[in-house]
Design a protein around this nucleic acid. Sequence first.
DNA 1: AAACTTTTCTGCAAAAAATGTATTTTTAAT
DNA 2: ATTAAAAATACATTTTTTGCAGAAAAGTTT
Lengths: 164, 164
Amino acid sequence: MDKNKLPVKKDMAMDELDFAMLAFLQQDGRTSFTVIAEKLNVSVGTVRTRFNRLLEEGILSIIGRVDPAKVGFHCYAHIAVFVRPATLKETVAKKIARLPEVSFLAGTSGDYDLEVDVMCRDNDHLQTFINKVAAIEGVHQTKTAIYFKVYKYAPPDLDLLKAE
Amino acid sequence: MDKNKLPVKKDMAMDELDFAMLAFLQQDGRTSFTVIAEKLNVSVGTVRTRFNRLLEEGILSIIGRVDPAKVGFHCYAHIAVFVRPATLKETVAKKIARLPEVSFLAGTSGDYDLEVDVMCRDNDHLQTFINKVAAIEGVHQTKTAIYFKVYKYAPPDLDLLKAE
DNA sequence: AAACTTTTCTGCAAAAAATGTATTTTTAAT
DNA sequence: ATTAAAAATACATTTTTTGCAGAAAAGTTT
């Protein structure tokens, strides 16, 4: 397999072999080096070296994904947070990030300032959480929406990077 | 280790041992059965049996998580989709779900009908994507917001289920 | 409550996979 | 072309997983 550099960040270049490995691991994070090596026609050692580099660089991480609904999180919600004065945004973000219910937190370019996605046991738990957020200094308003039905939840499609 | 049933869905009961295993695997999906067994004071066989059950039930999956930004997705955005007439919601959802850029798609209780999160290479790619969505029959309006800074991206915190 | 059934856990041997290291091959630079 | 550096390979060793068979626990039935 040849290694044509792909148009990624210059400092950490990745070739086709890396991407091929990622493709396997995205599907099953426990795929053995042996199997990957066979499928890609390289030695086990090569796969191992590459794998470790990908981990070290933080490009890849192997995690056990737990289905939230199946273990008891029956309420997945989206909270739009309006911060005032705007200068408090970072401070507020840091405080919200600490709450364990928060699965995603980001600053956006939209109407509101911060987006908070939370996993709660139930509506009761959610309400308690919202109150906690509302009590934070700088939180001016919140708008909550519940995710009724999740149609898709997928990892990034690496093919989008190859074919342009 | 004793197995006090925890308040999860009745049909697939999980005990403390299962949760302890999940906790390990959430951190490192490649943790060997041997290590888990030692830490939890059970036999390797037990860990294996439980592990397989968790996989089969879809409670757990081991995946290689790829850092989108590091491989070339420099634009993570949020698109609010308004569907009209409302009856087309499911149809529209199915069509959007097929697009490879979509990492998350859900129906919400908020102002808009569908929330679409997308991973794109750059703003250009994003714009092309938005046009594709806008062209779908039933899509009345879209509002896009870019995630400027992601403060947190975390798996569900299982401790929230134990202590209530 | 004893006898029986089912499920879960354990222990051990065999197979498979990962690791450590020395060597070869490839790549890049002068 | 020559040489230096980086990456890939091969193979012996260690570790982990897998496949069962037997033991222990939990749950039923009478």
